[in-house]
Simulated assay, not measured.
Amino acid sequence: MDFVLVHGTTQSPAGWDRVAKLLTAAGHRAIAVDLLTPRDLPVEGYAQHARDQYDGERPVVVAHSGSGVLLPAIAEALDARALVWVAAYIPDFAGGRSLRDEASAVLEPDWIGVDPTADPAKASEFLFHDCDPETERPALDSLRLFNPAVLAAHPAGAAPEVPSTVIVPTRDRTLRPDWLRRAGRERLGVTPIEIDAGHCPHLSRPAELAAILTGRA
């Protein structure tokens, strides 16, 4: 099985390294795409950018955090067999609101306006608070800002037709776990899977996350 791993707004693809190694060891192929480009693109442009980095067929596409805005378009461009939302924003398919419209309901209030790439202490407090010391260093090294305007402003399109899995980190300090639980049920019609982790379980709980991914695949 192929897994295409999509980084969020504050990390490079290196944030997926631990999960990718575990997926590979289990006999799968893992491709962490890089969404960073010299200029901002429309949603379809980022989907094609991901398509250009993948040479397989019908992968499971896994998105983290703000890249949930792009997940439906990337999944369509790659003809995905399934989608996985890891602490990821689920668009308002029925109402058409953007992440910017919903920010106060989606995000923890203390996180709004924080740039963790400019302050390692803030990164540790909000993103990596559940990482052990051995993990925190590479976690901090993975920090990188990717925040094109389209992520906040893009209105939701149609809901994806392929199966979805929603993973809710119960100790998330950036995206509200209660909101994500409700959005998974109401917007995708699925019962979320909970994991005892902060916002980045691919770093703090890679084995548990990889087991969920392989089990769902």
Rank of each mutant, 00 (worst) to 15 (best):
D119K: 06
E108R: 14
E108F: 02
D115K: 05
F93I: 10
A80H: 00
E125Q: 15
P120S: 07
I90F: 02
E76A: 15
G95I: 05
W85F: 15
A105R: 15
A103D: 02
D119N: 12
V86L: 15
R97W: 02
D79S: 01
L83H: 03
S104P: 09
S104G: 15
P91R: 12
P91L: 05
V114Q: 05
A80N: 01
S124F: 02
G96S: 11
R100E: 11
A121Y: 03
L78Y: 00
V86R: 14
E102I: 04
G96W: 07
S104N: 15
D115V: 07
D115H: 06
G95K: 14
A80R: 02
R97P: 08
P109G: 06
V86F: 05
W111F: 11
V84I: 09
G96Y: 06
E125G: 10
V86G: 12
S98C: 06
A77P: 10
G113T: 03
A94C: 12
G96A: 10
D79V: 00
A94P: 12
P91G: 10
P120G: 07
V114C: 03
D110V: 05
D101E: 08
D110F: 02
D92K: 12
V86Q: 12
L83W: 03
A103K: 15
R100Y: 10
V114K: 09
S124Q: 14
V106W: 01
S98I: 04
S104Q: 15
A105K: 15
L99C: 12
I112V: 12
V106I: 09
E76C: 06
W111D: 04
W85M: 11
A105W: 01
A121C: 03
G96N: 11
E125Y: 08
A123I: 05
L107K: 13
Y89I: 06
V114G: 05
G95L: 05
P116S: 09
D119S: 07
D110N: 11
V106Q: 05
W85E: 10
A88I: 01
R81D: 01
R100W: 08
D115C: 04
P116R: 10
R81P: 03
P91M: 03
L83Q: 13
D110E: 12
W111L: 09
S98A: 08
A123H: 06
L83A: 09
